Simulated scan of single mutants.
Amino acid sequence: MFAAIASGNPLQLSTEVPNSNGLQHTIVLSSTKPKSYSHITLFILPNVTFPQEFLATVYFKLNPAEDFKLFGYLGNEKPSAIFKVKLPQANVGNGVTANPSDGLGEIDMEDDVMTDDLNGANANHNISQLIIGISIEPRNDATAKLEQWKAEQAALSSSAGAGAMVLSKNSVQILTAGALAKQYPVVTQELAAKIVQHAYNYLTGFVDAQGNVSIKRFDTWWEKFRVRLQNDATFLDEVTKD
């Protein structure tokens, strides 16, 4: 369904992830030539009819033990993309070479500069373990995920330099609710207020004569809220005080 070409290497086809019903694919660029960076073209195969209501989100990682990191998407309106992948600094001084498993260094989306720097100290590095993950998701879900990713990258690029998305073990990783609140306090407060207001709006319809609401009503609200949040989280933008 998908294919990728690392500059100077043969085309490699995607493989479906078992038990994903064809919704997840991977491409392992196992024969890339050693270099400090490489341009990678990823595209939907010409004979594939990609459904308009879906997008294919694109992820990268350098080591099977790492987590995939989001970097873009493919779809009917964008059947191909070019990525310029830079490894972490290969020569860190005193003859010490950085470990590729430290994570992707930089990746520029749809970079038009097709210049390979194969001479110099970094030429002995390679990206032979680079793994591309592709997830076919409903368009609304994928769009929301991509918008969040763009906002996070904009915050990172403001300190790292325009045009570069720096990813490493030192990058900000939001793994808990507390980390989210610390990194984005204003947005977190706004989100919490929206959730509370949504619950309030729903539960006020079930207040009894004593001003109480059955806990079962709260459980019902929570189950409905979780399903709706999973299907289309943008509904929270429409939550207002009644």
Rank of each mutant, 00 (worst) to 15 (best):
Q183W: 02
T41E: 09
P10A: 09
T26P: 03
L62K: 13
S7T: 08
K78A: 01
I174T: 08
V196P: 00
I107E: 01
Y200I: 11
F68L: 13
N99L: 10
F225E: 02
K35D: 15
G103V: 09
T176V: 03
L13K: 15
L11N: 00
R217G: 00
Q189P: 00
A154G: 09
A123F: 01
Y200M: 12
S135L: 04
F235E: 09
E223K: 15
V48I: 15
V187G: 06
K145S: 15
W149I: 03
A142N: 10
Q24N: 12
P34C: 01
S214D: 14
S135Q: 09
N201S: 10
Q153M: 13
T26A: 04
K61G: 02
F43E: 06
N170P: 00
G161I: 02
L29R: 06
D242E: 14
G72M: 01
N170Y: 05
G211I: 07
T97C: 05
Y184C: 08
G105H: 01
L70I: 11
D117I: 14
L11K: 12
D141C: 09
A181V: 03
F71E: 09
S158N: 07
S128D: 13
A192I: 13
P138M: 02
A179K: 11
N126Q: 12
S31A: 12
F83H: 06
S168F: 04
M114I: 15
R217F: 01
A56F: 03
Y73G: 00
T41D: 03
A151Q: 12
S38L: 13
V28Q: 14
M114R: 11
L203M: 08
K224H: 10
P64G: 01
D67C: 10
K169T: 10
L62V: 14
F68W: 04
K145R: 14
V96R: 12
